[in-house]
Amino acid sequence: MEEENESGVVKKFMYVNRKAPYGTIYALEVLEMVLISAAFDQDVHMAFLDDGVYEIKKGHTPKGVGMKNFSPTYRALEGYDIEKLYVEKESLEERGLTEDDLLVPVEVMSRADLAKLMSEMDVVLTA
């Protein structure tokens, strides 16, 4: 259900990250959107599935390809009260990754549980 705060309605937002970083601009653009919604005091959730799990892989070093490392921004999300990060278990497994490979604390959940959580949102934005 929607709640009110002093500045208006608070909606449950979910940003669904499905793209690998660096190859396309999607991952970076979603981060920009997330930071904007945080500024409006919304209830922000971030989900990482499919190739999106690579966005929060530890150790990005894009210097050699001449790009900016934007992965530290994920660690800064906590400072914007964005702490609801969910990672799909099946997506990690297909890619040979574990929770230890990720640079931020997340909740790993099954595809079925993530689907349920997604269905409870007011706004879902996938990229």
């Binding site: 690998a20 660096y22 894009p62 050699g64 297909e94």
Partner: peptide
């Protein structure tokens, strides 16, 4: 360790396959 590893390992026996190091490093691999 991925779901495509077996296919790639098999292909690497038949063809020369290379991977670009700077792109691996960029992605923390």
């Amino acid at each position: 360790g991925t779901s495509v590893t077996a296919r790639m390992a098999d292909a690497a026996k038949q063809f020369r396959i290379c991977v670009l190091g700077p792109d691996l490093q960029a992605r923390g691999m």
